[in-house]
Structure formats: C-alpha cells, structure tokens
Design a binder for these strands. Structure first.
Lengths: 206, 206
DNA sequence: TCAATTGGGAAACGATCGTTTCCTAATATG
DNA sequence: CATATTAGGAAACGATCGTTTCCCAATTGA
C-alpha cells in the first residue's frame, strides 16, 4: 500500500520521480522570459531562476524553445483564469468592459508594468520568426477581442451600452488600448495616467 | 584644388576617409534591429545587412549597443520628419488627429506591420535593463503624446473638437491605441481591422 | 531482488557571441 | 616626400551560448 501523490490523470510512470513541480518552475521561467525576452534569457538565467541544473531542464524539456512555449502556455492559462474570475463579478456588460480594462490597467502600471507582459513580448520578439509562437499570441489576442465584443453585445442587450456603437470595431480598439498600455507601462508606469486612459475608453460605450 | 565632398559642418579630418555613408548603414541596422530585436541581432547580421566588415563597424561605433542607440536616434529622426510633413497638411485640429492616427495605422498593417516598430521593440526589450534606451523611448512617447494633446486643444479652439473632452487623458489614450496597433500588427496586420480602430478612436472627439 | 527506466548534476562539447589585433590602404599636414 | 592619422578587412581572441554526455540516485514492475 502506498500513497499515490500524483494528482494528475495518469499513473506515475517508471523511473526516478521528478523532484520539482513543473508549473512552479514554469512560473519562474515566465518571470525571467518576460523581463529579459527570449534571446536575452540564457539557459544559465533559467537554471538560476528555476533552481535547477541544466541537465534537469533538458530532461523535462526538449530545448530552450520548448521551455519558452510551455511557459507561455502556462502564462496564458493563469492570466485567463484570473480574468475569468474577475469577469464573473460583472453586473452587466458595461461593468464587464470596465472590469476588464481595469484588470489590465492594474497590471500595466507600477512594478508589474515595468516587468512587462509576456504576450506582448512574444508578439514583438518572436512572431516574425516563429510561426508557432505567432499563432499562440494571435489566438490569445483573438480571445481577448472576442471577450470584449461579447461584453459589449451583452451591454447593448441589458441597456448599459449604447446600441449605436459597433461591437467588433470597438472591441478591437479596446484590445489595442490594452496592449498599448502594456508598452507604455515599460517606460512610464504611472498609475493615474494609466487609469485615465481607462476612463476615456469607457466613454465609447455611451 | 580639391572638391570638398563633406557636406557636414566640420572640415574633413585627417586619415583615410570612410567609404560608406553612416546614415545609409544605420538605415539597414534599423531594419535588422527592428525585425530581430537587440539580442536577436548578431554583429554578423549587422555586418551582412550593412555591407561592412566587423572591423569597419567597430571603427565607426564603440560597440554593438552604440550601433543600436545610433540606429534608434536615426529611426526617431526619420519618423518624426515624416510625421511633421504629414501634420503640416492638417486643415484643423481634428484633421490633424486623424492624419496622425492614419499615419500609424498605415505602418501598423501589412508588411511594415509584421516588420514592427523599433520604438516598441526598444520599450519591450531594452527598457528594463538600459536606462539610456528607456529614457530615449520615453522621450519619444512623450513627444507623440504632446503632439496629440496640442492637436486636440487646437481642435477645441477651431471648433472641430468638442470642448467637453479632456485633452491630456484623450491624448494618452491615442498614444496607447497607436502603440497597441503596433503590437497587434506583428501577428494580425489586417488593413480593415487596423483602420476600423482609427474610426472608432475618432468618435472620442465628438 | 533484479532489470528497466527516469531524474539529478557536474563536466565537457562545438558553435557562435562581441570584440580586438594586425596589417595594408588612403587621406591630411608639414 | 615623410609622417601622422584613420579606414578596410581577415584572422584570431576569450567568453558564453545551447546542448549533450556520463555517472549516480531513485523509483517501478517482474
């Protein structure tokens, strides 16, 4: 009789068990990749941040790119979960848009603003030369755009958003604003300025 | 008697004259750095693109970082000149804002959209670890924000822009939109979507 | 208890990085 | 013409890159 520690779906495989948690390690990788970028991050950087030896890294992942893509997948998963949690509180369509904008504004200013956004980093640094990375970011962006659009339409039905605005184009603008705030947050992560943009953006729903 | 080829301010200095034009070479460097990023660009890449040997590069510039900073200075100079030229055509404040948004939308879509924006690249990749680069981008962003604000105020005086909007906050939003379009242009540089954002953004002036 | 299998970790790998050196070529100055 | 100065260009530099190898440790299944 033995305790089965594995909480996943598959039974533990043969061989010596991994001594570190993959997701915990990936969270560290996310932080390093976000701050330094893909090419600016060395295996040594990852090794130090993740608290592993290079050998262990290469046992768990095929190569540096695989670590990066896995980190990005986790980044999206974690952030999407947080956003969904926030949006669940929305009382109506307009409130949902506001919460979503504030969610990003909260991350685009101050320390986390300086630190940066991994999705923006991938788009800027990787999209041109890595089709798989590009597809991942595009999917992520499309998801956010669709969420904005759905909230706008919901607002038009519940009366909190003007019927005269175009949901698709306005959603695209919101997506642009949010990504732009992430860029500006790298050099001037002022809180008031960041949230003043949110206030102006909300006027588009009147 | 000899022709003085040097069109600059200083007389030609002693020693063998440089055989290439610095600005022409920097234009090539801008292209490479924009597409691959700072860390993704090697001296070999620059050597090939600029049509020089590494030795000549290091005669003209202190190191890789100096090439990058010089390229970024030139990038800003060239783009600012183009923008000023476009803004000179503006018939009023609102038209100026529209021309400025279109100027960026024109570059954020299609092939140049995929290629990317050097200022965004610097902000995302360099700002955290290079104070001088960060200061340069911030100055550049501030300049654009001030230009937007001035156009909005001009519009409020000439009657083309509503008096009830806040020039500063609205300018900041426009800046965000423009930088965001650059990010989105890396993965989905669709022309219609890009310009639809401009149309929505213009509604803020009513 | 004994293969088979997988992870941990140190060391080493070839490749490429950014940079310098060294020699020759071309100009200004005296 | 002689000297000083700077550029062009090939080759080489040490350092670091991403990755692999090798050996030992820990586990599963027979």
């Amino acid at each position: 009789m033995s305790l089965d520690i594995d909480l996943g779906t598959t039974a533990r495989s043969a061989g010596r068990p991994r001594e570190f948690d993959i997701d915990t390690a990936l969270d560290k990788a996310i932080s390093v990749f976000t701050e330094r970028g893909y090419h600016g991050t060395s295996i040594s950087d990852l090794r130090d941040a993740m608290g592993l030896t290079a050998g262990s890294l290469y046992k768990a992942f095929k190569d540096k790119r695989a670590i990066f893509l896995a980190a990005f997948d986790r980044y999206k998963q974690v952030r999407n979960a947080l956003l969904d949690e926030e949006l669940a509180k929305a009382s109506n369509g307009r409130d949902g848009v506001y919460r979503m904008l504030c969610f990003y504004a909260e991350n685009a200013h101050g320390q986390s603003g300086r630190h940066g956004c991994m999705a923006v980093g991938v788009a800027v640094e990787m999209a041109v030369f890595d089709d798989e990375a590009a597809a991942k970011v595009e999917r992520s962006m499309d998801r956010f755009e669709d969420t904005f659009e759905a909230l706008i339409r919901r607002g038009q039905e519940d009366g909190s958003v003007s019927r005269s605005i175009e949901p698709k184009a306005t959603a695209r603008l919101y997506l642009s604003v949010v990504q732009g705030l992430r860029v500006l947050g790298k050099t001037s992560p002022n809180r008031e300025e960041t949230f003043s943009v949110v206030d102006v953006a909300m006027k588009l729903l009147d």
